[in-house]
Structure formats: structure tokens, C-alpha cells
């Protein structure tokens, strides 16, 4: 930590009043600044990043995730396959030179399908978590900031909604709304904001009593300034960490929806839909239609969970460092 940073000279000589009688020779000139040196470390986010980067597992997860994203979105540029017209002549073929991961029951190339399905899975994960985090942050922030009766009413409403099991609600809604990426994202997102709203509210409530917020009030800061300059930036870390978990959960829920049969409109597909007939494939020994897509899905969810955990630790360190 002892960066050999030059301490700039002080403005004004800062020797406090008290001193010893006769100063011995060579005494004063080499003293450190009165307040002590400022050890230069690094900016807040850089420190968080360093903490994150020191977690090797989290780095691997991040790298893996980047690879998967590249595979899904850039992969199709290099690996062409027909994903719009089914091919009855090439149904459920095992992996071969022509189809590296075989074909599915509609004759689509499975590797290309993985890319396509990955695109929609990642998109749905991102959109759903975005919807959830926006609603959740606003809702929680309002409840925490306004307080009083409104807070009580708003949070009781969250309690009621939270007692309906997420998966069941999503399934019920999916009977009417599924088929497009947007539909599924909305269905997932609209019932995922409850937990973030609670987290943000809790964070806002504790932040409100922190001394630096009180200090801002004593200097005459408006409510708006307190909210936008102090409360929201400080509550953001909770939100950011939560996004990664929300994405992970959304992709998991997507898989369940697909398995039960609520998915994207054919010939579009997501990893969830591709697992819809997984049970039949397993019984028929068509492993290439189950494990590549399932494995990829688990890896992505795992990566998001690991990244979320590491982020939480890193942000904690940044704020609690003493």
C-alpha cells in the first residue's frame, strides 16, 4: 500500500500550537503533514474491481460469460445454419461432420439452434431483470423515502404478492402471454421486482439515518438533492448486485416455462424451449439434444450467480474498508 507517492507540500505550515521546549537539532523539517500522509490507493470503483479481480473464480466466470455471449451473438456470423425452415429429411441426426451437434426433430442444426436459443435466453434474462430492477428500485425507493402510511401500504402489498409462489403466477400468466421475447420478459419481470424493492427500501431506510445524509440536511440540501446525490448513488450497489441474481433467476424460470411448454413462437426458440421435449430425448438416447443446451444454460446461470456473489463481496469491501 505504500505507493511512493510524493506528498505535495501543505498550504501553510501546519504545526499545531504545542511543542516541546528546546527542539533538538534536525527535529522539525522532516515531519509528516500534521494530518498524516494520505496513502494513495485508487478510486472507489477501481478498488472494487481489484477486489473482484482478486477472486479468480469470479474472473473465470466473467470470461466464460463473455465467451458464451460471443458464441450466441457473434457465432452465427461464422457458423451458418438454416434456422427458419424445417428439414424433414434430416430429423434427429446424431452429431456428424455436417452438423457438429446433430439436428433436432425438425431438422434444424443443433449448434446453430444453440446460438439462436442463447440469444433469446440472454435477451429475456436481461429484459426481465431490467423490468424488475426498474420497478423494484422505484417502488422501494418511494416506500423508503416517503415512509409513514404509504410505506406501510406499499410494503404490505409486496408481502401479499410475495406470498404467491413466483413460478405458479408465471405459469398462469404464461398461458396467455408467451410467444415473443417481450411477452416472456414482461411476465417474468413483472413478478421479480418484489425482492429488489424490499432490498432497496431497506437500504434507503438505513441510508436515511446515516450521518452524511444528516450532514447534507444541516447544510440546507433540498430533498431532491439528498435523494439524487446521496441516497440513490449509495443504494445503487445493492441494485447492481441484485441484477446479476435476477438474470440468473429469470433464465432458470425461462427453462421451466420451456419445459412445461410455454415458449417462443416456432421457429423462434430459446434454451428453455429446446428443453421442452428433453424427457423424450433422454429416453430415446438423443443426448445431443439435451446436454449441450442444458449444460450451457447451467453454466450461464452459474456464472451469473458467481459474479453476483463476487460483486457483493467487492462492493462490501469498498464501502467497509477502514
Amino acid at each position: 500500500m505504500a505507493d511512493s507517492q510524493q506528498i505535495e507540500p501543505l498550504i501553510g505550515e501546519q504545526m499545531e500550537g504545542a511543542m516541546l521546549g528546546p527542539a533538538p537539532s534536525g527535529g522539525l523539517h522532516q515531519l509528516v503533514p500534521d494530518g498524516g500522509e494520505v496513502y494513495v490507493t485508487s478510486s472507489g470503483w477501481r478498488l472494487a474491481w481489484r477486489e473482484y479481480a482478486s477472486n479468480r473464480l469470479a474472473l473465470i466466470a466473467l470470461a466464460l460469460l463473455v465467451l458464451v455471449v460471443l458464441f450466441c451473438f457473434v457465432g452465427p456470423i461464422f457458423y451458418h445454419s438454416n434456422q427458419t425452415l424445417s428439414n424433414p429429411l434430416a430429423q434427429t441426426e446424431p452429431p456428424s461432420g455436417a452438423h457438429l451437434l446433430g439436428t433436432d426433430q425438425n431438422g434444424f442444426d443443433e449448434l446453430g439452434r444453440l446460438m439462436l436459443g442463447g440469444q433469446s435466453a440472454l435477451e429475456i434474462g436481461a429484459y426481465a431483470s431490467l423490468v424488475a430492477i426498474v420497478i423494484g428500485t422505484l417502488y422501494g425507493a418511494i416506500a423508503g423515502l416517503v415512509g409513514g402510511v404509504l410505506d406501510a401500504v406499499l410494503m404490505r402489498f409486496v408481502d401479499v404478492l410475495l406470498s404467491i409462489p413466483f413460478l405458479i403466477v408465471v405459469l398462469v400468466l404464461a398461458t396467455k402471454y408467451s410467444g415473443t421475447v417481450l411477452d416472456i420478459s414482461l411476465v417474468l419481470g413483472i413478478f421479480s421486482w418484489l425482492v429488489p424493492s424490499r432490498l432497496v427500501r431497506g437500504e434507503v431506510l438505513t441510508l436515511r439515518t446515516r450521518d452524511f445524509v444528516i450532514a447534507a440536511q444541516t447544510m440546507g440540501a433540498t430533498r431532491r438533492r439528498v435523494i439524487f446525490r446521496h441516497l440513490i448513488p449509495n443504494a445503487m450497489s445493492v441494485t447492481i448486485v441484485n441484477i446479476t441474481f435476477l438474470i440468473a433467476d429469470s433464465i432458470l424460470a425461462l427453462a421451466l416455462l420451456g419445459f412445461i411448454g410455454f415458449g417462443l413462437q416456432f421457429p423462434n426458440t430459446s434454451w428453455g424451449d429446446m428443453l421442452g421435449n428433453a424427457q423424450t430425448y433422454v429416453t430415446n438416447g438423443q443426448w445431443w439434444l439435451v446436454y449441450p443446451v442444458g449444460g450451457l444454460l447451467v453454466v450461464v446461470v452459474l456464472c451469473f450467480n458467481i459474479i453476483g456473489d463476487a460483486l457483493r463481496d467487492a462492493v462490501d469491501v469498498r464501502l467497509q474498508r477502514r
Binding site: A248, L252, A255, L256, F259, L275, A278, Q279, G294, L297, V298, V301, L302, N305
Partner: peptide, 8 residues
Amino acid sequence: LYSMPSFF
């Protein structure tokens, strides 16, 4: 396990 869909 935590990151796995139950049916998988």
C-alpha cells in the same frame, strides 16, 4: 445444483 433447473 443451485444454478440448475430442477427438471434438468
